[in-house]
Design a protein around this nucleic acid. Structure first.
Lengths: 247, 247
DNA sequence: ATAATAGTGTCTATTAGACAATATCCT
DNA sequence: AGGATATTGTCTAATAGACACTATTAT
């Protein structure tokens, strides 16, 4: 009996794929959006673009763009590659100089009024010494760093307000449990600069003495090493450190 | 001067949308895939399906399916709704009885040999008292719980091995920092049962006395409350607790 | 000298963990 | 009574935080 059922065409996978014809089910568009943070003037900033075209013309939006796909054999670019590409296009910064991590997918119906769009959001951290280069290098003349505090009430295009809020929440969580703080200081930094980054993100002052002690543990663990030179700030100069294991 | 430039057609957003015609840029397909965990016999299990059709015919795969979208005004279902729908279809469990959370988007070219597919992966935790209902209720007769330890070397269909590994890593991280442990015990549970869940996921024995003490703090904080009844295990019965703030 | 920042000392409270001891209850 | 599990006790080490204090340097 089962032989009877099995007796019809038994394909190999190669045969199946050769004969495969994609149905014409409707597909959504897929984009990547970037939440790019930096810290300038002791303030958390995000890179936004003033939209010149509809929809949401005139509103602020996260930089991003469509994922390049094809129905050819190569199928187009990787998701993360697309994020890196957009990052380079929007900031002008060399590939690999910016820390990038996936935030998640956002795809509520109606988030783009034109058509169904699923976006994969990424958050990126730009060292403050690179941040000034961004405004000049961006291909969108209306791109710029916006203070998160000033942006508080401001509505953004699409569902970008929700994405931004999710990114900020993630940042606050990660700053306490991971090493991402190092991504928001220059390569060579003082303890105070690192503490300031933490203070800005956490939104509260940290005790300099206690912070130094916890930093001391990182030195002992070899995570961070002292480097020659000092930082002159008009007062007593501070020692300069370097995050070990960084290009 | 600028008046001159502005003097050509100035559309409102409504006009723009009414006239909007989507270009025929190629779009990827979008799916949702589920990593559904439970704990049975003091062992972490994941729900997998034996594929009956090409591609990867005969291989084990994560349950999942295509996101339903449309070019109509409603644009189709929400991403999370799709995950919930697939979860209900694959497990037969009532909507809302299972904890569900987004893991992330996976979209490497070639991950589906047929066509370009971006998948949004979700991880779900099924209470052990509901787990036995799953195999019966599933629409895929070949669905079943597989031990993660036994699955260690086993290759899975598509890039599902990578997704599964990411989910396990997330589980290990979250079990120490969040409350998800409660999602893997019955509604009424003993301290030992909760400890066992942690032991299984962390892969090491935990001191009963120390674990009890940390649990004590949760009682004091009102996170968890004692409930009437005891649990008979053949030995000394244990007190039964309930996670406060659960349906 | 003064102001400002860098860095140290000290104390308390909390927590994780190792490990021993006692309590309770089923068989 | 014996055995298994629940529960309590005790000690140590690590950590976070509050807060006072000393050190160094530009002005």
């Amino acid at each position: 009996m089962s032989d009877m059922l099995m007796s019809d065409v038994e394909q190999t996978e190669a045969e199946y794929l050769a004969a495969y014809e994609p149905g014409d089910f409707p597909r959504p568009s897929v984009t990547v959006d970037l939440v790019i943070f930096t810290i300038l003037d002791r303030d958390l900033k995000v890179l936004l673009i003033r939209r010149r075209e509809h929809p949401f013309k005139g509103a602020l939006a996260l930089p991003g763009g469509f994922l390049r796909v094809s129905d050819d054999a190569d199928q187009g670019e990787d998701l993360e590659a697309a994020a890196h590409r957009e990052l380079a296009e929007e900031t002008g910064l060399p590939l690999g100089s910016v820390w990038l991590n996936q935030l998640g997918a956002f795809g509520a119906p109606g988030r783009d009024p034109r058509l169904r769009v699923i976006t994969v959001a990424w958050f990126a951290l730009v060292r403050p010494d690179l941040a000034p280069l961004v405004e000049a290098g961006s291909d969108a003349a209306d791109a710029g760093w916006f203070s998160l505090t000033e942006l508080a009430g401001e509505p953004l295009a699409f569902d970008h307000r929700g994405i931004l809020d999710a990114a900020v929440a993630r940042l606050e969580r990660d700053i306490e449990h991971t090493d991402i703080g190092y991504e928001l200081v220059s390569r060579r930094f003082t303890i105070t600069e690192l503490r300031s980054v933490n203070e800005v993100i956490l939104g509260r002052k940290l005790d300099p003495g206690n912070f130094r002690r916890s930093f001391q543990r990182l030195i002992e663990d070899g995570v961070v090493v002292e480097t020659p030179g000092e930082r002159y700030t008009g007062r007593r100069p501070a020692k300069v450190y370097r995050f070990k294991g960084r290009r």
